[in-house]
């Protein structure tokens, strides 16, 4: 599913070159639930940008779902982000003054899905994260946890190859964090490939595999012996 081979990223500021990633080797199989950890400056943000096809590596190859992304143009990368990746951000990144439903419809708008089909799928996705009764609410009318669930609905609505979450619980209280992790665990159980970038050990413990970054390389890559199960507060668990 995800295959990184010798991924390098060099940032140039004037004459100074900073090596953010030095030859990363990483394989993530389909259906895995992985967390990427590391202190700030370890290269995990750069890693997240490259995994999310928001940035291009300086060297190495990155195959996502069989596509070589390192040779793709900006437009092709936009297409890959649209069809292969579902993003969940720390700051939710929902469009303001836009209803939950329309936010979830957005990726399908760019994928060229017909309006009727968009609505149907967006409603289903919102229902699966327990927000069936909040579809016409705007982000400022929703709690942080609810906003993040809208973002998750938006990420999974296009049935992407990978859900990529960047500090998904960073702005949430512990109860909402539990809810969000419960949804991820359920999505994992349903066979989705999920990568979570986080610096919180408790969050990483909810995943099946932890990849630790340090100074631009992978310091440790281990399976979690006994993942911590999130207690679900999501009311309509059975709706999924």
């Amino acid at each position: 599913m995800i295959k990184l081979d010798g991924i390098k990223k060099v940032y140039k500021t004037g004459d100074i070159e900073v090596l953010a990633l030095s030859g990363i080797q990483l394989h993530v199989a389909e259906g895995e639930f992985v967390s990427i950890m590391g202190p700030s400056g370890s290269g995990k943000s750069t890693m997240m940008n490259i995994l999310g096809c928001l940035d291009k590596p300086t060297g190495g190859t990155y195959f996502l779902d069989g596509i070589d992304t390192s040779k793709a143009s900006n437009n092709e990368l936009a297409n890959i982000r649209n069809r292969k990746i579902g993003f969940v951000f720390q700051g939710f990144n929902l469009l303001k003054r836009t209803s939950a439903l329309e936010n979830v419809e957005l990726p399908m708008l760019y994928a060229g899905v017909a309006a009727k089909e968009r609505r149907k799928r967006a409603l289903a996705a919102l229902e699966s994260v327990g927000l069936a009764d909040r579809v016409h609410h705007k982000p400022n009318e929703l709690s942080g946890g609810q906003q993040q669930r809208v973002a998750i609905a938006r990420a999974l609505v296009g049935q992407p190859a990978m859900i990529l979450a960047d500090e998904p619980t960073g702005n949430l209280d512990s109860r909402s964090s539990e809810e969000v992790m419960a949804i991820f665990q359920r999505l994992h159980a349903q066979g989705n490939t999920i990568v979570v970038v986080t610096h919180e050990p408790e969050i990483a413990e909810h995943t099946w595999r932890i990849v630790r970054f340090k100074d631009g390389h992978i310091a440790q890559d281990e399976l979690v012996a006994e993942p911590r199960m999130a207690r679900a507060h999501v009311p309509d668990e059975e709706g999924a």
Binding site: N74, N75, A78, R81, N82, N93
Partner: peptide
């Protein structure tokens, strides 16, 4: 700017 960033991240092309 942020809205544009969100749109681009979830797949809006330059042309869009």
């Amino acid at each position: 700017t942020r809205e544009i960033g969100i749109r681009k991240a979830i797949g809006a092309k330059r042309r869009d």
